[in-house]
Write a protein that binds this DNA or RNA. Structure first.
Lengths: 333, 333
DNA sequence: TTGAAAGCGTTACCAG
DNA sequence: CTGGTAACGCTTTCAA
């Protein structure tokens, strides 16, 4: 007998086990309201295994009126090992709570167009990193059944829970640290990649805030992530008169440190340098790179927040500050 | 009149527009087989916009018998900027072909258990990076309606298309290069993180293959990604008698180079060093780090392969070698 | 050109 | 304890 490779349904399982579809559902979902005899259970499980039966998530959520799907737009730019660990932890924790976590590539869609695409999947919750969603988007998602929308980013959005990742704190740390070290003419590297502006602007603002009311000055230093750009920036060094730089993150800091050293600048004597993200590689430079260590929330905590929000969709949107920043002084500052 | 925030269905749109559900479907899907009057189309679109109607992907695919969902398990470990760009390009290209691409966190599931979880979403195609899926998994996916399963990894799996990313080629390059440079006692760094074994083993094998039949020797150098581990390895340097190292990738190479230099070893005079991945940061070291540049396939090509496979599910599984590797000699070798 | 109805795979209710 | 049945939202014949 040739197996037709049609997708087996619960009806097929029922037929093979000699029971009704309802019974199959009861057995496979361990429905506690109904008691099924042990032999029957065994027959059903056996049949399901034999056919390679896999339930149809779409049909299930159609029937149930809601899914267990948690949608998380994938950030277009790689966010570094730290953020990656956070995401993995979150996925794991949500998995433990029996949610299905899925990352949706948001490339090419923008604004509320993206929200509509996501809404088609009828997620029960949506986690939005960055600042790419407006109130309209939240509206669309909630209207289509999302019981919780959580933003992970610099600001809050009407109707959504917010995990405030205030990158100004990162800049603030760095600025205060450099001031303490006696630096007064401070440059701040701004990556030219526009996708990073959502983070670089707040970090710059943080530096400014830390130095407000002091005699220190802040200079913006736009920089593309290439050796040539770094060399050009370093060449203008002496005339700029800066005595310190906060370099957005460790990668830009490493790039700039090299270029400065090639120009003959002594780090930290002539110019202090601070990065951010606490990458392993920063420790390999000579001098070792000072950096701002960033603390993300634990994935378990966020998973709990999501779960609570899903269970109580009416509750007030929760707003929580979650980004910890602290200077790790090493040798470059 | 208070809007009940129930998610609007096509029936609601039909009611508001004063037409039948069928008409709504025709209009919103631009069905060419049926001609709908312009005023009606307008009324339907208007009603849909007003209600914020978003179609239910699950219901649609239930009816259609298949989805437009392409599933891609997200690798548990960050794969670097190169791989990231490849993924983004792929998503964009598949999006152009009207597929919905989704990354499924595979954390905590393993083997065919994962395949079953994926199958619940009834994807029309599955792209599996790494070597985590066996023939059983492919079977499960195909049985549940997947028209194409494509593996991106070192080997091929029965029943699946394969984009062979032969990391032995990376090691081969490096080995041949070091031999050409006159090195004969060659160490190969093997990261201790087990998740990387799928790549480090083939790279080691490639080095071995490049040196087979020569007078050169190959020594395995297990190394954890910490400064201490690197220092320990470097301390055993003199006695080991090695004159070259292929360091798995640029990050491990940078770590080791630093440790070796701190031990007083001169690079490349005493020991040549080659990394892989061609990271920007490798250029910042002194000496500049030699590396193996890896060329991934274009996302557009893969998107086309997927599309073809979906349209012709019966076709022979396609097997294609797609990983280009070439040495970028700089100053460390 | 439009409408009625069937059916995709599930599960929950209600009879037996 | 088990089975029939209806309903979830959508598309697609078929009939008007």
């Amino acid at each position: 007998m040739v197996q037709i490779p049609n997708t087996p349904t619960s009806a097929d399982v029922a037929r093979l086990a000699g029971v009704s579809r309802a019974t199959v559902s009861y057995v496979l979902n361990n429905t506690s309201a109904v008691r099924i005899s042990e032999p029957t259970r065994r027959r059903v499980h056996e049949a399901a295994r034999e056919l390679g039966y896999v339930p149809h998530a779409g049909a299930r959520s159609l029937r149930a009126g809601h899914s267990r799907l948690v949608l998380m737009p994938a950030p277009a730019i790689p966010m570094g090992p730290l953020y990656n660990r956070f995401i993995n932890e979150l996925q794991w924790a949500l998995g433990r709570l029996d949610y299905t976590v899925v990352q949706y590539g948001s490339v090419g869609l923008r604004g509320d167009e993206a929200a509509r695409a996501w809404a088609e999947l009828r997620p029960v919750a949506v986690l939005v990193p960055g600042a790419e969603m407006g109130p309209g988007g939240v509206q669309v998602l909630k209207r289509s059944g999302a019981r919780a929308v959580v933003t992970l980013g610099p600001g809050r959005v009407e109707g959504a829970h917010a995990l405030l990742m205030d990158h100004a704190a990162v800049g603030h740390c760095a600025g205060a640290h450099l001031y303490e070290r006696g630096r007064r003419r401070i440059g701040v590297v701004l990556p030219e990649e526009t996708a990073l502006e959502a983070y670089s602007r707040p970090r710059l603002a943080g530096v400014r805030q830390a130095l407000r009311g002091t005699d220190a000055t802040v200079t913006e230093l736009p920089l593309a992530y290439t050796e040539e750009a770094a060399a050009r920036l370093a060449a203008r060094w002496r005339e700029s008169g800066l005595d310190a730089v906060f370099a957005y993150n460790d990668e830009y800091a490493m790039l700039l440190m090299r270029a400065l050293q090639d120009e003959g600048a002594r780090v930290p004597r002539d110019v202090a340098l601070v990065g951010a993200d606490d990458l392993m590689l920063g420790r390999l430079l000579r001098p070792r790179l000072s950096t701002v260590h960033i603390e993300l929330p634990s994935g378990r905590d966020l998973a709990e927040l999501v779960d609570r929000a899903v269970r109580d969709p009416g509750g007030e949107p929760e707003v929580r500050k979650v980004l910890g920043a602290s200077v790790v002084p090493r040798e470059s500052s």
